[in-house]
Design a protein around this nucleic acid. Structure first.
Lengths: 129, 129
DNA sequence: ACCGATGTTGAGTTGAGAGTCAACATCAAT
DNA sequence: ATTGATGTTGACTCTCAACTCAACATCGGT
């Protein structure tokens, strides 16, 4: 059975795979963030996060990390227990999405059932095009 | 065309429909919150929120308000621009859910399409039972 | 005219999220 | 044994969301 990774553990994996030091990665992330955000990203902060001594960083920081590491931002956001920002927007704007989400979570669907829904969505798309 | 309500406006509607004063409602919400949370809920705060002079309150407070007013918490959360609290959890646990919402969001579905999905989900449930 | 209930406002407080900074430990290479 | 690069840690800071508090305005009832 696959080992269950924490956010920090996965982040370290990804960083090492890219052969970056904490300082390098933190600096790159910091410059990505400085552009719009006013927050920084120190390498000592990264260290604590990798060791799960602090909770995962903010959503913008996670997105910057994923971008820098060519990683799947949804995976990291999920490990951090946060919803992707655009999914959040969709739920905020579309009542239908909200209703759907409510029923889906209440039914506690299996992976197979999610895949069926995915397939149906796929069919809808083709037909609609 | 239906008038577009703000969070504050809708909240006031709901409160008046229940014939509660700001003090009464705020007190009830406060006692609901005190149980787990350490935050309060003052009537003057409620006043400002109803007049949209302050942003909507925290998610726990919105949930308590909805419960006290027998209102739909998803509606209030949506008006407040917040995602329902369990979104992160569901997406964390089920990869299928993540993939599904990603595609659905990217396709920018209409309300009608969300309803079709909802109908399909309904069918799945009946058949699976 | 007064009183109690209700609602509004400006100023102030507080706790937590999101980091920073200085100092130290470890290790490989020279 | 020194140096340079890397990682770890504890203590601190800073900002802002989320409120509270005291004071005042308005209005209906008596």
């Amino acid at each position: 059975m696959a080992k269950k990774l924490t956010f920090g553990g996965r982040l370290r994996e990804l960083r090492l795979a890219k052969k970056l030091s904490q300082r390098e990665l933190a600096d790159k992330v910091a410059s990505r963030l400085k552009e719009d955000d006013r927050r920084g990203f120190d390498f000592t902060y990264l260290s604590k996060i990798e060791n799960d001594r602090l909770p995962p960083p903010s959503t913008p920081a996670i997105l910057a990390l994923a971008a820098e590491l060519d990683a799947d931002s949804d995976e990291l956001l999920a490990l951090a227990g946060k919803a992707p920002p655009d999914v959040g927007d969709e739920l905020r704007k579309k009542e239908g999405a909200r209703v759907f989400f409510r029923s889906a979570t209440q039914q506690n669907l299996t992976e197979a059932e999610w895949q069926r829904l995915q397939a149906y969505l796929e069919r809808m798309r083709k037909e609609g095009k």
